[in-house]
């Protein structure tokens, strides 16, 4: 793949948004988007973890899994790297930035099971990105995810005062809003294609 990392970064935010076109990270997206503050906190944590783990997993894949010919273990290794990194980050933040810990702390364990994190690692292997491209793709995907969850949280706050059929409460209406957002994002799709 010879796309410049810069293009890939923007493409990951807009034309192939990790949530709106690849459907990754839906669980925490639907459950956390009730308030804007917590959505923002989780989104920032996701950006950070995504960028770091896509770099780590790229290194692990190309310098450990491929030379030892154990590529079939990639799922287990990737998930361990992600879980260990999140744990490490939690300790680090608790020790050196207690204020940040109180805002981000509760979200960090949630991130390990966020499928966007593992998804980005797998996508970057399948599409054979190089190191710089992987970091750009990871960071872009994180920002795209933050964008999507912030938009949904904002709309859901307005929606509290509106009449919604009871059967659609919660997940139903959120899915419809997400669908409309996804249609909006299709408008970007002509700019660049990175499938």
């Amino acid at each position: 793949m010879d796309i410049s990392a810069f293009v890939l970064f923007w493409a990951a935010i807009f034309t192939s948004n990790i949530l709106l076109t690849n459907f990754l990270g839906m669980c925490s997206y639907l459950s956390v988007s009730k308030e804007i503050e917590s959505s923002f906190g989780l989104g920032v944590a996701v950006i950070f973890v995504l960028t770091a783990t896509s770099a780590l997993n790229w290194l692990v894949y190309h310098y450990i899994l491929v030379p030892f010919d154990i590529v079939y273990l990639q799922f287990i290794v990737f998930i361990i790297v992600i879980a260990a990194f999140v744990q490490f980050l939690e300790l680090l933040i608790e020790r050196y930035a207690p204020a940040l810990y109180y805002t981000l702390g509760i979200f960090l364990p949630l991130i390990t099971v966020n499928c966007a994190i593992l998804g980005v690692s797998l996508f970057m292997i399948i599409r054979s990105y190089n190191f710089i491209q992987s970091i750009a793709y990871g960071a872009g995907s994180g920002i795209g995810w933050l964008l999507a969850i912030l938009m949904l949280a904002g709309i859901r706050r307005k929606l509290k005062e509106k009449m919604v059929p009871i059967g659609l409460h919660g997940a139903g209406i959120s899915l419809i809003i997400t669908g409309i957002m996804a249609m909006g994002f299709i408008g970007f799709s002509g700019i660049v294609q990175i499938q």
């Binding site: 709106l20 076109t21 459907f23 659609l168 997940a171 139903g172 209406i173 899915l175 419809i176 997400t178 669908g179 409309i180 996804a182 249609m183 299709i186």
Partner: peptide, 9 residues
Amino acid sequence: APSAFFILA
């Protein structure tokens, strides 16, 4: 993508 969201909803 959008159709999947709508149909599930």
